[in-house]
Design a protein around this nucleic acid. Structure first.
Lengths: 223, 223, 223, 223
DNA sequence: CATGAATGAGGGTTCATTCAT
DNA sequence: TATGAATGAACCCTCATTCAT
């Protein structure tokens, strides 16, 4: 049908599985798992339907492979790596910036949205989200906060509350960005700032025992 | 088979459409739109499959009717009602408590989750969410904050940031509660406190120009 | 497509399952389980593909239902019923005649052939054949023979050998009739006589201690 | 990948077709024609799937080649060879023993089972069975019996009946052994004696005009 | 109005066959 | 000659929708 012969047909290709995974991920994100058609995934990867089954046992297997690859490696490991680093407000700032750029602004958030959408049908996703993402992230932020409190940089607040203040808005912004924004014509009012810098400083100020000179805050409005 | 009409068990026929809508909503929330079976919706409403089509043209029509009825009226109106009330920190406290009890702790959050899940296939849901929920809520919170700043109760911060701090965690907690928690075996570490009181006080303290005596804060940890 | 409307469409029909079973059996016998198409079974029963799944869970379920119905009831029970009857050579004669007319001459043998063909893929069939058909049949014949020996009507031979002599040829003839004969153009030489009377008398004569006057035997050839 | 030709492990290329035929036959016997996978046949022959198509046009072609080679030559010829031998009871005894050991006890019966199973789809198999196996076998046995009757060793019975008595149980036992026994857990009661000696003597005794001293029969039970 | 048996398009999956290397 | 990745027709099964009763 399609002029395959016009371009050199790529065979014996080791990259096939990855192409299929990429195609599957993009379609799962676009349409959801159930609505994504095997034919379309294969077509997007430039192969026909049967070829997909040379590399993956089933549609569900595609999703599981995606989880194993995209989450367990990239996301989780990148978080664990920072676990040992010395805690500091700058670390928090950096962590939030990374999350924001990757999950809210970037496309990785599509996976998070997929995860929330499909957790019902694939409970392994729910467990993965808790074990590999939420738990280590909350732990990391919690440690930094405790460290700050011990060194008297921060007020003595319940660290879990600070974790909520830092992590939950990012999740909400991520889900809004990928589940709502693309389909709404009314996104003039953003849900969650494109740039969380201001938000982070606000939380940090709330952590400081004495906002020495709050006029320095970039969030201050000079009426 | 049996002449059920002989018994007064049969509800008024006028209630039929509403029973079907209720059944549809509960199943959409439980299983998602795609996975909800017409047979099961009809069965839950106490009628047979064919009867459903006397009242609704299609499965999609069911969801659209639900949107028109449940979303546009109940949820939105309850929020609008509070719009005109005089702004104050207590109002914020109350607003957050209402949200928390209804959407995070209660079952109404299932609708929010459905909304996020199906916005892709039914963009009207995305628009509804923005127009009827997010925009008025943010506007309301924003007014209260501005009012507080004008009266010098609050520091002069960007009101949108406070809105983010108050609204986004509630959304994240709501979605976590309904999309992740029921399917995860690892919810020992909650995502978002069951009770947002502590969180709210933390944000409020961050809003105060001088946390005069922060030892009054319930979040303070007495080392 | 087909002028369904020409004939009154039969709906609400309780006979549907049986019509489907009949259609399935005839196609399984004709083509084997694997080669029988669900579409064709449904068409032969006068319904469309999906209708079949209102009554049976799967293609395999069709076969299992057939086994339960055709084997466990008709064949097995008819054999068990005769278990208590008083043993006699006439009983043997009758038993063999019944088998011959039903399994060799009649269509029931198609089921036996199906059973031999599909036992590999559905071991339950092999067990059923042994438990419900072979074991009780051999037991019955064995009892009759033992009874005859005790009453000195028969020579004292190993009953199992007589069972072999009576049962195995019937099985072979049945399988030949349904697996080979319809597809061979060379069946001029039959494999197993159409009528087992002569064969039975031959075996019976072999059982008699003294073929008193073998000239009475119908098998005797007067050279 | 690895240059296998560097090692003498690679068989002569001329042997390739035969290796494929052997692999195909063994798989056809094990799983049946339809369930045997081309991939597995090729793998068992030590080549890859595509190579098979260098030697055979299709899966069906494989079976046809097998028929031409294995069935028409080996089996049939071995039977024809005995056709000319002088008839005698000992010949019958030997013939039955050969059949028993080869087709019932041995693996050659798998071919017979394959033949019965696939005759429907490949009528040439049915014709082969009749022309090359059944007809000559029955003819041979018939001749021996007639010879015995002429020499007054046997009673004057219809030779076809004796053929049935001798041939059909072997066929039934063969098919039972290969189609039922491997898949049944209830083979405690055998269908057809493992050793047909007793059976043969029983038939032979029935053939004798006067079982002069039947106490010599090994089948006699000494009550 | 209400029923529920029937429909049939469309999905995921298998596997004999092909063909560029 | 040999490979094995790719193909795609055909299968079983699902389920929203229809319609005779």
């Amino acid at each position: 049908m399609i002029n395959r012969t016009a371009f050199p047909i790529r065979r014996h290709k080791q990259a096939r599985p990855q192409e299929l995974l990429d195609a599957a991920l993009s379609l799962f994100i676009e349409k959801g798992f159930a609505a994504a058609r095997i034919d379309e995934i294969a077509a997007r990867a430039g192969v026909c339907k049967g070829t997909l089954y040379l590399y993956f046992d089933s549609k569900e297997d595609l999703l599981k492979a995606l989880i194993a690859q995209r989450f367990s490696s990239r996301v989780a490991i990148s978080l664990h790596e920072t676990t040992d680093v010395r805690a500091s407000p700058d670390m928090l700032r950096e962590l939030i910036a990374t999350w924001q750029s990757e999950f809210v602004a970037g496309e990785a958030g599509g996976i998070v949205n997929l995860l929330f959408t499909e957790a019902r049908n694939f409970p392994v996703l729910a467990n993965f989200w808790m074990r590999e993402v939420i738990t280590p992230t909350r732990l990391l932020v919690s440690r930094i906060v405790k460290h700050g409190i011990e060194r008297a940089e921060f007020r003595a607040v319940d660290p879990d509350i600070v974790v909520d203040a830092l992590v939950l808005p990012l999740i909400a912004a991520c889900l809004h960005r990928h589940a709502i924004a693309p389909y709404s014509t009314l996104d003039a009012v953003p849900c969650g700032h494109a740039d969380f810098n201001g938000y982070f400083e606000f939380v940090l100020e709330g952590l400081m025992d004495r906002p020495a000179d709050s006029s320095q805050s970039p969030n201050r409005i000079t009426a």
